[in-house]
Simulated assay, not measured.
Amino acid sequence: MLEHTIHGDISGTPVLIAHGLYGSGRNWGVIAKRLSATRRVITVDMRNHGHSDWSDDHTYPAMADDLAQVIDHIGAPMDVVGHSMGGKAAMMLALTRPDTLRSLVVGDIAPVAYSHSQMQYIEAMRAVDLAQVTRRSQANDQLAALGVEPALCSFLTQSLDVAEKRWRLNIDVLAQNMPEILSFPEVSTTFEGPVLFLSGAASDYVDRSYRPKILDLFPQAKFAKIPGAGHWLHAEKPREFEQNLTSYLNTISGAHLT
């Protein structure tokens, strides 16, 4: 089972958060803590990330099954939030195990194949001289010198085990599975529950041309954008992301909005 952390103990429908490529549940700690004031929140480390097990299989059906195991263990249904790779895994979960979730929030990704690669970050992490790293800031400096933007330097090094001088990412398997990560499986089912596609206004990951495909799979889908945010919208605009998420979940719950 995926490594996971439960934040809060409030009754009601819990929220499960699935992070994106190269991330971990730790990346969502601040947002999870704030959300846990009104609902129970579960953050997971996806397979080949963080403290979860490593596997040669890094496909979306496998990742969706991982999420289903956590939900089945804690108790279904849940509201599921997924960003990027985690968003695709969450969509796959909704399409294959709709009994596990009440609603779905997809962060800046669509159920389509993308042509861009994320290999540049793997090459940058491989190039870091971990033997010379005794503080996370030193790895940040090396990544910055390799051309990684500052916000992503800090994001990536949250998955660095400084003491063990290793990445808590199965970099080789992620590289081998990059075509699968960038794609999305062909499915013939639909998810009839409520879905919010929340994207960054400065991102091109959820292009308007993708909407017919999205609506084919998720007929109840709604769309919203966060001004000034790019693909990493939860890191760039955490308060705005949290506000949009809370408002949507409250609407799903029929709660009074304040």
Rank of each mutant, 00 (worst) to 15 (best):
L2N: 02
E3C: 12
G8T: 12
P14I: 12
V15W: 04
A18W: 01
A18H: 04
A18Y: 05
L21Y: 03
L21D: 00
R26V: 12
N27D: 15
K33F: 09
I42Y: 10
T43Q: 02
D45K: 07
N48G: 11
S52Q: 09
L67V: 12
V70C: 12
S84E: 02
S84I: 01
S84L: 05
M85S: 04
K88D: 08
M92A: 14
T96I: 08
R102S: 13
R102K: 14
S103R: 01
G107R: 01
A113V: 07
Y114I: 08
S115W: 04
H116R: 13
Y121G: 03
I122P: 00
R126M: 06
V128I: 13
Q132L: 14
Q132K: 15
V133W: 08
R135E: 15
Q142F: 10
Q142C: 09
Q142L: 06
E149R: 15
A151V: 13
L152T: 09
S154E: 15
L156F: 14
T157P: 04
K165T: 11
R166Y: 06
L169V: 12
N170M: 09
V173F: 05
V173K: 04
L182F: 05
F184W: 08
S188P: 02
T190W: 07
F191K: 01
F191W: 12
G193I: 01
L198R: 00
G200S: 07
V206K: 00
S209W: 02
K213Y: 05
L215T: 11
D216Y: 09
F218C: 05
P219Y: 11
A229F: 10
G230I: 00
G230W: 01
T246G: 01
S253D: 15
S253K: 08
A255R: 03
A255K: 05
